[in-house]
Write a protein that binds this DNA or RNA. Structure first.
Lengths: 226, 226
DNA sequence: GCAAAAGTGTTCCTTTTACACCCATGC
DNA sequence: GCATGGGTGTAAAAGGAACACTTTTGC
């Protein structure tokens, strides 16, 4: 029996959050066959001398020009026939970033690269639809036991921005007062003396995250039911 | 640049539960280098024409002689140097079975195979210690949102057996009365008219799972905090 | 009658939810 | 003065934790 010829790839589901636009996902237009010209998740083959994590970072850089620090492993997809040419097992990663910090462009390995609102994604190549779906589900679950925000909001933000962020990711309304009560109990926010108006209505206080407490909490994993 | 030469393997962390003995894990003694003669998780290279799931099943069969139906993907380990010979990326699976139903023996591909109590495992080859640790953590977490029991207890069982099962997996004491109240609320048990004594003490009623309700609940994922 | 396990209920406390009114600003 | 968003508190309900006594059996 000959040695199996299986390739290993990585794919990245990078979600971008923007206060104005909500939740998006980063996609590339494929430059080569198969599925040439179609949209897909950024990703590609792992090299023999790089870790899986390094491979995702590299592919993201090569295809979209961005560098994302924190990606988490999502799931490994290895069904036969998921790539029409060869047997390819792909390890999918996902992450959530502040969209405004990432100016994506089609780097060398992609014909195009851009953010798509999660409500409005095109058909995807391979089984990437399935991967995206798994990532969305996982993202929501994850928020139940980890704070999110520091990486997604500006340094100073209004409480309503944070509120909006959670509503966006959960995809449903959350009572403003209860949310505030709960979030403040985590004791990871600092209220600033400044106030800011967004043009109409009463100006709101600005907040910032207490980095130390924030990461301490994140590390040990809080239980946070919204 | 030449094509990367990376192999894909699978490994299985099979936990066995036994009312008398508690929680064990299935290990094999390696028949070939590297780590020849050392204990390891069952597993091996994936073939080109089989799915990852099929590969785990096959390796389990070849090394330990057992067939496990329900394994879930745990995590993919792909660090450089985790196998001293080649670059090997391994997809780890885990599952929980009724130990008494699985008579393991060293099948063709292992020098030995047996259950080890989770409190008393030997040193393991490769990074299998790390994999085992990840599986243990995941198993506990999993019980919070899925019922367990049907697959692990006899058809008819005393409530104390179920209680004991949960205590074993969680590794701590759980109040008997509160546990009973909560579990009965799930409405997946049927109380039988039979009573059975285990030699001393008041005989207890026997219960069985209502299969339909059990799997319905399991499928949709309950939220079950012990 | 004593040791061992099974059966059962209540109280307290914490957490969650629902909900309404006033305040500061721009226009 | 009115529309808009920001700020705050309370009451009711649900859920979780702690806890003790009685019953049935074997010996």
């Amino acid at each position: 029996m000959s040695l199996p010829n299986i390739r290993v790839s990585v794919d990245a589901v990078v979600f971008g959050y923007d206060s104005g636009e909500g939740l998006s996902v980063l996609l590339i237009k494929r430059k080569v066959a198969p599925y040439k010209g179609e949209w897909a998740l950024p990703g590609g083959l792992v090299r023999e001398d790089e870790s899986l994590e390094a491979a995702v970072q590299r592919e993201l850089e090569e295809e979209t020009g961005i560098a994302v620090n924190y990606l988490e492993q999502l799931y490994t997809f290895g069904d036969l026939g998921r790539d029409p040419r060869n047997r390819v097992v792909t390890v999918a990663y996902y992450g959530l970033v502040r969209q405004s910090e990432f100016d994506v462009y089609a780097a060398t390995d992609a014909a195009d690269a851009k953010w798509f609102h999660t409500d409005d994604t095109p058909e995807l190549a391979f089984d990437h639809q399935q991967i995206l779906h798994a990532a969305t589900t996982r993202l929501r679950g994850k928020l139940s036991y980890e704070p999110v925000g520091f990486e997604l909001l500006d340094k100073k933000f209004r409480f309503s921005d944070l509120h909006q962020l959670y509503q966006t990711i959960y995809g449903r309304d959350i009572d403003r007062r209860n949310f505030k009560k709960k979030f403040l109990q985590l004791d990871i926010l600092q209220e600033l003396p400044e106030k800011v108006s967004e043009g109409r209505g009463r100006p709101g206080a600005l907040f910032k995250f207490d980095q130390k407490k924030y990461f301490a909490l994140k590390k040990k994993g809080m239980l946070f039911q919204i």
